[in-house]
Deep mutational scan, measured.
Amino acid sequence: MSIQHFRVALIPFFAAFCLPVFAHPETLVKVKDAEDQLGARVGYIELDLNSGKILESFRPEERFPMMSTFKVLLCGAVLSRVDAGQEQLGRRIHYSQNDLVEYSPVTEKHLTDGMTVRELCSAAITMSDNTAANLLLTTIGGPKELTAFLHNMGDHVTRLDRWEPELNEAIPNDERDTTMPAAMATTLRKLLTGELLTLASRQQLIDWMEADKVAGPLLRSALPAGWFIADKSGAGERGSRGIIAALGPDGKPSRIVVIYTTGSQATMDERNRQIAEIGASLIKHW
């Protein structure tokens, strides 16, 4: 067993022997301040990774656009098919120029040779490549099948209805392509620590998230040296922004954090800054 596999296998073990965790309302004060600064709703939840206990939450059962955070769930569904012998990570998928959609920095470079399922998941999570996500959605049967996968996990809230990039439209009061912070946090925890996926697939999923290259201005910008984070960000229309993450000190994750916002007129930089400040408060009061 590799060191990384050992780390993920012992996530519940280490967490069980940690000192009790206590909620700190100071972080919620910052979440509410972010709402004021952005002029928009902000949803927040913080779960203990081992027990699933909610440590703090704000608007945990209000719907927010998922945006690209759905790509972690998508690759979880792909990995479940791999575990069941219905898919192979090494299978190569070929596609054409007509398949390319807006923001496809990886797939646009491989029109000639195609990409493997493993490479597509890596591109979808680490670079948020939209064509990679659409190609992977095709392998599982489309958005409705991802929703069905989530329902089978016990998540009857999260739903995907459309493809990239239309799913980022974020129309107010439109339930399409949305989740709730509580539902997303619980589902992410199941994917990373539950028995739904094999140990190898859980490790692969967290490795992809740990290698995320496009979430630097968010929670990662607030992390002290030595902290662990595996995350996936999302951005959408109407001032929408979000991030889902597993993080913790001492090089291992111990909490799940989900943050979503929508309806702001603020710039992307300002949305990023507010999420980073929430992260800084979380870490300060850990």
Rank of each mutant, 00 (worst) to 15 (best):
A77K: 10
E56Q: 11
S122W: 11
P249E: 08
S57G: 11
H110A: 08
S122A: 12
I244A: 07
D231K: 04
E164S: 00
I45H: 05
A200I: 11
T262M: 09
G234D: 00
E62I: 06
R271T: 11
A266C: 14
A34L: 08
N152T: 14
C75E: 01
T107W: 01
I171K: 14
E56W: 05
R202A: 10
S221N: 12
R81S: 09
L111R: 08
A132K: 00
V78G: 01
K190V: 12
A245S: 10
D83E: 10
M268L: 12
H94G: 10
S57F: 09
L28N: 07
P25F: 08
T69I: 04
H24Y: 09
D161C: 06
R59V: 01
P172Y: 11
G239I: 01
L218S: 03
L160S: 11
T131H: 04
H156A: 15
S104P: 02
E277S: 10
P65V: 04
T126R: 07
I275E: 01
L136E: 01
G216L: 08
L137G: 04
A215H: 04
K32I: 11
F64M: 07
R255K: 12
A148L: 14
V31N: 02
L247V: 11
E164H: 01
R59S: 05
E26G: 12
T126C: 11
L199Q: 14
G76L: 05
V214T: 09
L167D: 03
S201D: 02
E210I: 15
A16T: 11
E210Q: 12
M184L: 07
G154W: 04
L192R: 01
C75I: 07
A16M: 15
M67T: 11
R81W: 06
A16G: 15
Q37E: 14
G76E: 01
A246M: 15
V21N: 06
K252F: 10
I125H: 03
D33P: 01
L196E: 15
G242N: 03
L219H: 03
L136M: 07
T262H: 14
M153C: 15
R162Q: 08
A23T: 04
L197Q: 05
I278S: 00
L196A: 15
I243K: 00
E62G: 07
Q86Y: 13
G114E: 04
L74A: 06
V117E: 03
F17W: 10
Y95T: 03
T69G: 02
A215M: 03
N152Q: 15
W227A: 03
T139F: 06
F13E: 02
L55P: 02
C121V: 04
G236K: 01
L196G: 12
N152C: 11
Y44N: 00
S80N: 12
T178Y: 02
R63Y: 07
L89W: 06
